[in-house]
Design a protein around this nucleic acid. Sequence first.
DNA 1: GTTCACTACCCAATCGTTTGGGTAGTGAGG
DNA 2: CCTCACTACCCAAACGATTGGGTAGTGAAC
Lengths: 345, 345
Amino acid sequence: MTGIRPGSVTLKDLAAELGLHPSTVSRILHGKADTARGAAAPVTAQRVRDLAKKVGYSPDPQATSLRTRRTHLLGVIVPRLSDLVLAVMYEGIDEAADDANYSTFVMNSRDDTLIQRRKMEIMLSRRVDGLIIGDAHLDGNILDELTERKVPFVLMNRAIAGFASATCDDTLGGALVAQHLWDQGHRDVSIIAGEPYASTAVDRTHGFVSRFRSLGGTIPEGAIVWSRFDTTGGHTAADSILRGTHPRPSAIFAVNDFAAIGAMGAANSHGLHVGRDLAIVGFNDTSLAAQLPIALSSVRSPMLDIGRVAVKLLLGVLNGDAVESVRLAPVLCVRDSSDFTWVAG
Amino acid sequence: MTGIRPGSVTLKDLAAELGLHPSTVSRILHGKADTARGAAAPVTAQRVRDLAKKVGYSPDPQATSLRTRRTHLLGVIVPRLSDLVLAVMYEGIDEAADDANYSTFVMNSRDDTLIQRRKMEIMLSRRVDGLIIGDAHLDGNILDELTERKVPFVLMNRAIAGFASATCDDTLGGALVAQHLWDQGHRDVSIIAGEPYASTAVDRTHGFVSRFRSLGGTIPEGAIVWSRFDTTGGHTAADSILRGTHPRPSAIFAVNDFAAIGAMGAANSHGLHVGRDLAIVGFNDTSLAAQLPIALSSVRSPMLDIGRVAVKLLLGVLNGDAVESVRLAPVLCVRDSSDFTWVAG
DNA sequence: GTTCACTACCCAATCGTTTGGGTAGTGAGG
DNA sequence: CCTCACTACCCAAACGATTGGGTAGTGAAC
């Protein structure tokens, strides 16, 4: 449609073609409220807009942001995009940013503090307008630094007290699982708790533990096993749980679907049939959960929305608003992996 | 370390501080070969570099590319980042681009031709130096247009004749699976073939079929079922296969791990034990395959490398080199889902 | 003591926009 | 006829870097 690669035609070209001054053309193509401030005659304005459309004029973003000091670029930093959870959140970001006419850089930090720093510097040196941080560690010292440097940013997925974030209500999510397992009659449970530096892991675990205890249950220290977030991490953790000396739990809560899948594998190799001998519940309800050979119970977190909200928050910050953290409510999806009613009934 | 947000200090500031002209500073900080062309005295050069490092000078990329007409930005377009395969490839891109001092935009097209176009225009209007296209459709008319508009680009994952691409040798991959299933004694096989517009799907299917036939096997038309690439797609396809009238196959090749997982689910609900009653082989060997309750046989494709190679190719194109497509070799990983030897032996 | 070739710099234009501040021209009011 | 307030524009200076083309100054050769 546009014919040629955008960028060929400049404001000056348009102005010359129409016998106008570039500044006039700029004002016309720029705003609406401005036009009223005496920018141009309606007729001229229309001529300008018509030509602009016809030749497919699109302003040079480099030139624009050189002048305006705004790039309309958002930086997104996540542990890894190959983590489905973050990938879906990024899709939400992509959509929301697109709607607001922003573009996004996204980089993987592998949850490594050094890489985190490096990627952030790269983004800042690209002059992004703001940052969405999806890999915050609970000892968030980088964040203080960013605040001090007056970099606009918000957190996503993981929350840190004192900073604006878009997350799932992980504490509630954990509690839902505790309630469910308790209701199913489980009294000996273990938790595959994830990485201790991630608020998601900590909050889900904490939410689970405190609800379970408030129901009258007990959870010994040894029942909580920290682990990586991936399948291997889950496998290893479940293995150590099932191999443990204390009474083998009848249910395991993994704070992440992938860890849960790993746990299913481990259960299998221990000769346990998941859903009958051992209940397993995951978190996030990724697209896989429902499709597994033994469908996995999981807490559905609104990943797409979390991404979208993160963008909205950040745009708020950029706009100078005082923004509040948003915690979206999760929903428990019970499936075969933890549904014992058919056994009991 | 850097103290303040980069961008605060400019070339002019440096020059003023040192009593030099900005152009001199620019030349010093720019190249090495240039320096020899009479840029500055070694002593001065050192002074400049020291100060630059001390104050954390980093050139404004907008200003630079306004002048040089190069943004050091690569555009990446994929169907969806929530497809693990593409996410991993993107990690490869991220790394390679980083090494070469480029940054990347990545956008999701959902394999929708309209969105595809729109996202491309966005990237071009951002003045990316080149494009990595991960969602090419076999009727690649957009590509001709891009060529005509002289946009530098390469394909990734999916190949189209006549354009440079970084892919897995999908035909070979399909053939490996055919050979394996044949060797295991399977004579009735079905294929969950994926989307017919994707070269990955077509080539893997074709590779499988032609090897199987050359071994003396037959594959009726009805044994090839096109499908979406995700778990649901695989489930539906497998369901229709297992429900079919013709003799139920003893093995299914799904051209994608997620489709294979869906197929496992379907097999399950048909009362078939995968690995004993029915063999299933996937493709890509994503991190899940080995961890599933029944470990999934899969063709390992070097996803990370494909991403890296795509960047290398694109940089070649940008450099004016004549680049050749690269097809990386896959490796078959046999696991429980298709290993019948313990039954036969 | 010119010319010559360096060395080590400086000058100024330029990339494409934006934006604060003009200024001709017009019609009305006094 | 002068002032005044518009309207509908134009001017020029930025923004921060790059780059082709100078030019003082120095030492050596003739």
